[in-house]
């Protein structure tokens, strides 16, 4: 599955306000929950914060990928944001986070979920790609950058 297939302009922000990790994750959840594939927002929130407790999803280089598995969604739910300010995300490399990808999968679809996780986290490890994303001004631009990058990086 392609990343551009799970994102749309409604769930992408280029200047998400917020100052703390919790605020940012909650704002992402609000963003994602505008879609009717989210059946139970609070349960989804619980799953995401539960996962965050196990290990910070700030994987480094200013990128974080909060995620979770739950039956409170009917299909894969995603949201993407560039934050207005750098956020302390308790990342391993202690770099503040600017780029956040939220991914929630159904708990009976482990395969697609971890495939997408790795696809996103692998892509985000490219410095030049992150730079281009940070320079995007509109959700449409963000989606276009994703589209180009996926085309060049993956065969599929």
């Amino acid at each position: 599955m392609k990343i551009v297939e799970i994102l749309n302009e409604q769930v992408v922000r280029t200047n998400l306000p917020g100052t703390t990790k919790t605020e940012i994750i909650n704002a992402m959840i609000d963003l994602a929950a505008t879609q009717d594939r989210v059946l139970d927002k609070e349960k989804m929130r619980e799953a995401i914060f539960e996962r965050e407790k196990i290990m910070s999803t700030g994987v480094g280089s200013g990128f974080a990928i909060p995620h979770g598995k739950t039956d409170a969604v009917r299909d894969i739910v995603a949201a993407f944001a560039i934050t207005e300010q750098p956020i302390d995300y308790q990342s391993l490399d202690e770099q503040p986070v600017r780029i956040v990808f939220l991914l929630v999968g159904r708990d009976n679809m482990v395969g697609p979920h971890i495939k997408l996780l790795s696809r996103i986290s692998r892509l985000m490890n490219r410095e030049e790609f992150r730079k281009r994303l940070l320079e995007a001004h509109t959700p449409a631009e963000v989606l276009e950058i994703f589209r180009q990058e996926e085309e060049s990086h993956f065969e599929v």
Binding site: G60, K115, S121, R122, N125
Partner: peptide
Amino acid sequence: SRDERMMVPSGGTVLEPGDTLL
């Protein structure tokens, strides 16, 4: 899980950044 591949690791499998481990 790495990019498009899923693999069952052996002891010699080398980890890469952004790999998702189950």
